[in-house]
């Protein structure tokens, strides 16, 4: 078969709604785009652990502590699922992490903003995770099987992230004047970075067309952004909260909440590495990576010794094999 015929067959499979699996023929560009996108997504999860993780020790009730620990743990889990999906395409985690730590790979810019108060934790949960869920629900329909399956798993767990955040925002918005001011201030800071998470306008997004043609994405950045704004605004207003957009208005004709212009200069500045926390986030990741090196090496050495010298230390006998059958 010629490459053209293969490409035609490949695109026909996607048009039929089939999933592409790891060993299937795929255009090199599809593989490259997916590795780029999935690893970026994985990096976002693990860098995203940092701004929230910093508040675990300060969470103001025992329950909130538990919830935040579980949420940040989930983010590590989601990063893990996503790295796995990229590994099925031939990428290695060593290489992907090296790309991240040497600033060759990108991650979601929203995590380059600082978390300045406890209310940020609620707002991140409701807004940032809420926005992520909209994107991820679309990606769960992605044409690449392992990516789509990772997304299904992630979406199911992320609903908890969004709801715990919303619950916190509700509580603070109905709380004392100090708490209300705190949560409004957090929304003011996170609103625009959250809207930027959906990516540039469709007309400016260089990867979008190809990703849509190959069924990796099925809806455009602007479409998804609108879904998010329409979901959020009525709830925020009901809580007596506002967003920092003087041009925001409801369009009777379309039923959409229309937002004012997004500051794309800021967006590109942060994407290119000059946001408020880019350096700090990467430094934290590099530090953890370097501090962990001797640990990873020690366990690799121990495993090697076990292989050559036979098992050391206590052995655990395998119980009888129990096969669960259909």
């Amino acid at each position: 078969m010629t490459d053209e015929a293969r490409l035609e067959a490949f695109e026909a499979r996607i048009a039929r709604g089939e999933k592409i699996e790891p060993g299937d023929w795929m255009p090199e560009q599809y593989r490259k785009q997916l590795i780029r996108m999935i690893s970026q997504h994985a990096h976002s999860e693990i860098v995203g652990m940092l701004p929230e993780g910093a508040w675990i020790t300060r969470a103001p009730t025992l329950r909130r502590k538990l919830v935040l620990l579980a949420k940040v743990q989930d983010e590590a889990g989601h990063g893990q699922y996503l790295y796995h999906a990229a590994e099925t395409l031939g990428a290695t985690r060593e290489q992907m992490l090296d790309d991240l730590l040497s600033s060759r790979a990108k991650y979601s810019s929203v995590f380059n903003y600082p978390t300045l108060s406890w209310a940020d934790i609620g707002v991140i949960g409701w807004l940032v995770d809420g926005a992520a869920i909209i994107n991820q629900t679309m990606l769960a329909k992605s044409s690449y099987g392992p990516y789509s399956r990772a997304m299904l798993r992630i979406c199911a767990e992320e609903t908890f992230h969004k709801k715990q955040g919303q619950e916190m925002v509700i509580l603070l918005s109905q709380g004392t004047p100090k708490q209300r001011a705190m949560v409004q201030n957090a929304i003011n800071r996170w609103w625009w970075p959250t809207l930027m998470m959906f990516g540039p306008h469709d007309s400016e997004s260089k990867n979008s067309a190809e990703l849509m043609r190959w069924g990796v994405k099925t809806r455009s950045n602007d479409e998804l952004r609108q879904v998010f704004v329409n979901q959020l605004i009525p709830d925020l207003h009901a809580l007596g909260l506002s967003v920092p957009d003087p041009q925001l208005r409801f369009d009777e004709e379309t039923g959409n909440w229309l937002i004012g212009p997004i500051d794309w200069d800021e967006f590109w500045r942060v994407v290119k590495g000059n946001g408020p926390c880019n350096a700090e986030r990467l430094e934290a990741r590099r530090q953890a990576h370097e501090d962990g090196r001797w640990v990873r090496e020690a366990l690799a050495a121990y495993a090697e010794k076990q292989k050559t010298e036979g098992p050391q230390g206590p052995q655990r006998p395998q119980g009888p094999c129990e096969f669960a059958r259909p």
């Binding site: 675990i56 025992l62 538990l66 620990l69 940040v72 743990q73 590590a76 889990g77 530090q287 962990g292």
Partner: peptide
């Protein structure tokens, strides 16, 4: 819990956050 996001490898980040959660649960 101070290790969350800073463990030597991703799998251990998850494992250790589990231990921290369990202990918080036991405290409760």
């Amino acid at each position: 819990s101070e290790w969350t996001g800073h463990a030597p490898i991703l799998e251990e980040d998850i494992a250790f956050a589990n231990i921290a959660q369990d202990e918080m649960g036991h405290a409760l």
